[in-house]
Design a protein around this nucleic acid. Sequence first.
DNA 1: AGCGTAAACTTAACGGCGTTAACATCGCAC
DNA 2: GTGCGATGTTAACGCCGTTAAGTTTACGCT
Lengths: 226, 226
Amino acid sequence: MPNSKSPRASYHHGDLANALTVAATELARTGGPEAVVLREAARKVGVSATAAYRHFEGRGELIHAVKELALTELAARMQDELATSEPVPDPPAEALRRLRALGTGYIRFALAEPGLFRTAFCRADTPGMESEPVDMLGTRSFQMLVETLDTLVGCGWIPPDRRPYLELAAWSTVHGMADLLLDGPLRLCPPDQQEAAIQRALDMVADGIAALAAGHAGPAKVGPAP
Amino acid sequence: MPNSKSPRASYHHGDLANALTVAATELARTGGPEAVVLREAARKVGVSATAAYRHFEGRGELIHAVKELALTELAARMQDELATSEPVPDPPAEALRRLRALGTGYIRFALAEPGLFRTAFCRADTPGMESEPVDMLGTRSFQMLVETLDTLVGCGWIPPDRRPYLELAAWSTVHGMADLLLDGPLRLCPPDQQEAAIQRALDMVADGIAALAAGHAGPAKVGPAP
DNA sequence: AGCGTAAACTTAACGGCGTTAACATCGCAC
DNA sequence: GTGCGATGTTAACGCCGTTAAGTTTACGCT
């Protein structure tokens, strides 16, 4: 059986598409989206650059393959995070626990694999390639978030009329925080400060959602009396 | 006085650095960061590509110039938004109004000028260029946010121990939402749905902060009884 | 078995990019 | 007025993505 080892034995590779994808993923892991260079991936696999075009439309499609791989890793990291704290019996409390764990997992993945994270959500840059930047909605990670919020509606914690777009609001905060940590002002802060910022953001989300549960009549257009 | 008009009159341009910056900004406005191509900017100005190196270290520094310009426009847009609603006399309510306006302005700028917005916050990609991705903290827009939150602390609305990192949490949400609107699942939604998502996110921030004001004892680790 | 076709790879080449090196032109201080 | 430094020029290098045209192999068909 042909193998991806050094100067390969047979003319035909046998699994080039996969080999290129993992090579490209390794490049992305190290250097982010702009590091996934078609020629370099081919070089790593030991194949001519143009061979890639038998399996991918171009660089854009290669990046897209990396994206899918990265998104899978992201979902796994979030899933893992669910297991790092104990489930609680009370259903709404359990859903809130899950919500927080999902956000934490998301951000931890971004910190642990910045290259992959950036690639997963990058606007595929160079060529024509306006191919879907990623159908986030179909993503496993996004589904987990949606399900958790639905649970909170299901058990009466969130009024159904407050449900719409809530997943996007929550996602925004977590995704934005990841961005800030990677490229923003927090990028060179000591880890404990980063952690504090993360927790503060998650608090804000939890409190914002709890406000709905507390049934307060609407978005705070005017504050309560001091 | 020499001018940036077509085939320029004199050998020396007279204001190349500026001319290149605005040309590059125009490219960014249209096509985002990857569209700011040094050679193209030079071409637009009617000058050889290498002339740019008399004024910029390379493409990275050119992009950086665009970033600063874009950030100025962003701050202006946020400032404008402050004027679109009436000030209210009650100081905390006024601060909350400003908070909301700043977020709205931020997102509106992103929607109105996606190319500039993306460039403002892009990790300058191609060359060595790890030069500061932008010192967001020094940014006028960030300062406005900080001041507003400080006001809320000043008038006793936010307990001082809850103040740290709050600006980052709020910024995260707004920035993340802008990202989602530009490249995420909301990118091709009709504007009214986009607007709804924006308002929901801003509600969440406001409610999350209001929860601090309401003095509830901590981040909702366990929900209130249903 | 043998053969032919199509899939999987190759080399060669094009144009565009960022960047360097070497040369040309201008303006201003002396 | 002249010379020198700042500001522009052309030429060239190496890398990239991509296309075109040729080569090698696997495999189904008779």
